[in-house]
């Protein structure tokens, strides 16, 4: 694939209560954003196993976003978002060791009302990924 028509592909894990609802709201309010994202709904950001993220990179995702409710108190399951925060803080360090730039992964807190933030996050990440170019194949041969 030439870098000219390189269209990054972003896999998103969104919690059902806040972030998925925010992405719905972006649509309902007709806030336009680029179509490069593919959203997978989970009940809570705490459900996201780092293995899912690695699997996404392995299969050709250029970027991954895990999106959950805003800490401290928005989580529908008390503190699942905090658990995600702990898990992925550790995971980010691991990513770099695997040769995957840390900018390719984002953990974002997007409340159900924050459609604008969702649009901003997508645009920012796309810009970042365009700058980085496609993910190197050897990085993900784990």
């Amino acid at each position: 694939m030439s870098t000219n028509n390189y269209e990054p592909r972003i896999v998103v894990f969104a919690c059902n209560w806040c972030s998925y609802a925010a992405i719905d709201l972006a649509g309902t309010s007709r806030k336009l954003y680029p179509p490069n994202v593919r959203v997978i709904r989970v009940m809570c950001s705490g459900r996201v196993d780092p293995q899912f993220v690695l699997e996404a990179f392995k299969n050709g995702a250029d970027g991954v976003i895990v999106a959950g409710c805003r800490p401290p108190s928005d989580c529908h399951y008390i503190n699942g978002n905090i658990k995600a925060l702990r898990r992925f803080t550790l995971f980010k360090r691991l990513l770099e060791e695997l040769g995957i730039e840390k900018e390719r992964f984002r953990l974002e807190w997007i409340s159900a009302a924050e459609a604008d933030k969702w649009v901003r996050v997508v645009n920012e990440m796309l810009e970042e990924l365009r700058r980085l170019g496609p993910l190197k194949a050897e990085a993900v041969s784990v």
Partner: peptide
């Protein structure tokens, strides 16, 4: 039904109905 136990289970013994590892992995692929 938050599934956080499932995400953390080292042996994959704990699975969340409707959001099992294999189901989410299939979506990722």
């Amino acid at each position: 039904g938050c599934g956080t136990c499932s995400a953390a289970c080292p042996s994959g013994a704990m699975q969340q109905y409707g959001f099992k590892d294999i189901q989410i992995m299939a979506q990722v692929v």
